[in-house]
Design a protein around this nucleic acid. Structure first.
Lengths: 338, 338
DNA sequence: ATCATTTGAATAAACGATTTACGAAGCGGA
DNA sequence: TCCGCTTCGTAAATCGTTTATTCAAATGAT
């Protein structure tokens, strides 16, 4: 299978170049205090090249107390909403030679101990933590205080570095679109946690500003199945709304099927707008109107802040927003005839 | 922020217990050759407990030449199809104290060098590689020969450990369902790569066995958008089929919207069955009939084989299949009236 | 009492890279 | 010639575990 030659060590490069291992290391890492003759430097470089040398990551990690690994703890790793965010985060990390490990926060409940061990066990240089969903919040925040971290979605606190989207504005944009097209009876289907609360506030304040009535948030959860159930219950209870704003794309999918299951037509009877646009929105029947949020930018920026945080810890809040709120109008919304 | 006390080292545990570091290490790792008095062992254990000691992963990795990290290289990491597979793989890995890093094979084209460095740079103990999609296949297979690996989706070779689903049977199950409900004109919309080829063969042979005609595979790609485009083209070219089998769930979603965009009704004009069931299938309008494949089992088994592979490399093929093919009939299929 | 075993544990050398402290040439000036 | 300053590098101590080797004390046999 593999050939018998091991991977070369620093010492072997040094011997080939006729210098000491220390010098090779310093040249390799661009030590500014190193003063080597051009021909010495060239010899080192060509020895590295010739042996195709790459440093041993574990040895480096031990000596430098830095693993080059970042953790990305998400509430639901596999929510398609996060695909682009994770990808952008990984590219951003790769630029600084970091790799990203995905961690599922849902495991927190069952296997909290294992989670803490991975995260607190010097295996990771830093951690991106999605918070603000209620359950296990205290554990996450304790971790955030012990490991260089950037917490996102959560509300800001005095001692953490946080980053989040402009949730209120996104929901406001969705709501305003419905108002603009003549709707006066609009519901919000939300989920547990502060992101949903902020979106609800965007919904509520926009309706209030327009002099229109608002309803308490319907609790739909973060999954399509929960969105479906709560919508069926909500509409089944005789609610007379002509439009719904859904907290996120997965929930919105369930709301979509829930409206259909309730015997109402989209958009003729009920219009639907999703906060968060995603890959499947355009393929629904009818296609779903949605507000785009810059999750990719959030991921990239979160990583940049985290890497900064590793060197110089500090608290503070960052809000990531598109220059303009972006609404993608598709077939799930329709103007009310005056 | 964090308190001033470092994490304890092995030497500190040893001092507290009044023994040597070596002994602590051997007891900690359950060395069978260690002969310690019960009270000594108890002292060590209580010292570990008292200091809340956990070994330094980088030091261990250096000494043992084992990082505890497994790579999971997927064609499209974020395809929702893989959610359960990745989760099950992670649980299986966690049981043996391995963590999993997700890698995107799509990056291979642009950043092949970076990919090789991560993968070949002793950062990973082993690699799960999804193969069989055509592009970059040679690079993946070269890697598979140099790092302990389990390759999945690909066809078996003499020198690799491979694992895959029973693709042909899944497609056969889907096709048979359509035949059983009276369809005689059935198309298959596929994608590049051997998994799709195997599914096509299941489709073709099932129709042949029933004495029905089959069509060449329509190339739809692995994404919803590609499925949509190819379906619109296919139906627009005047194809007269009453049913379609789609290679996977994402493609099927695009086929679904493509049928609608072509002005045909599901299931009245065209029935649709997806190979792979997934979370959103039940929320489509109409909900999508699908064949379930045990991707979760594939993930768990692949990890188990990989961990085995790390200790004792060997070639061989494993096919993961449910005891019974499982078809979930929803609203996207309808019997043809005779 | 003496020698040979066993039992119980310590010692020290890796693993591979990084970095601080130190030193041998080479050079110019007095 | 001798001192002092650069220049260009080297040596050796870490980082924290693991494990082969060694060794002292306790036990047993004669």
């Amino acid at each position: 299978m593999s050939s018998t030659t091991r991977k070369p060590r620093l010492a072997e490069v040094a011997k080939l170049a006729g210098v000491s291992p220390g010098l090779v290391s310093r040249i390799l890492n661009g030590d500014p205090t190193v003063r080597a003759r051009p021909e010495t430097r060239a010899a080192v470089l060509s020895a590295i090249e010739m042996l195709n040398y790459t440093p041993h990551p574990s040895a480096r990690a031990l000596r430098n107390a830095r693993t080059g690994l970042l953790g990305f703890a998400l509430h639901h790793v596999n929510d398609p909403i996060y695909a682009e965010m994770v990808q952008r985060a990984q590219s951003a990390a790769a630029r600084d030679n970091f790799s990203i490990i995905l961690l599922n926060t849902a495991e927190l409940a069952e296997r909290g101990e294992a989670f803490r061990n991975i995260v607190l066990g010097r295996r990771l240089d830093g951690l991106l933590i999605q918070s603000g969903f209620g359950a296990g919040e205290d554990v996450l925040h304790e971790i955030a205080r012990r490991v260089p971290s950037v917490v996102f979605s959560a509300n800001p606190t005095a001692d953490m570095r946080t980053i989040r989207l402009d949730d209120a504005r996104a929901a406001a944009t969705a709501t305003q679109h419905l108002i603009d097209t003549g709707h006066t009876s609009i519901a919000y289907i939300g989920a547990p946690g502060v992101s949903s609360e902020r979106r609800f506030e965007g919904y509520r304040s926009t309706l209030a500003a327009a002099g229109l009535p608002w309803l308490p948030a319907v609790n739909g959860g973060w999954t399509a199945d929960e969105g479906h159930e709560s919508t069926v219950r909500f509409l089944g209870s005789g609610a007379q709304v002509t439009a719904i704003v859904a907290v996120t794309a997965t929930t919105a999918l369930g709301v979509h099927s829930g409206i259909v299951a309730s015997g109402r037509r989209i958009p003729d009877d009920v219009s639907l707008v999703s906060v968060h646009d995603t890959w499947y929105a355009r393929h629904l029947n009818p296609p779903m109107t949605a507000v785009t949020l810059p999750l990719g930018d959030l991921g990239a920026l979160a990583v940049a802040e985290l890497i900064d945080q590793i060197d110089t810890p500090r608290a503070g809040e960052t809000i990531v927003a598109d220059p303009e709120p972006r609404l993608v109008v598709r077939g799930s919304t329709k103007a009310i005839q005056a």
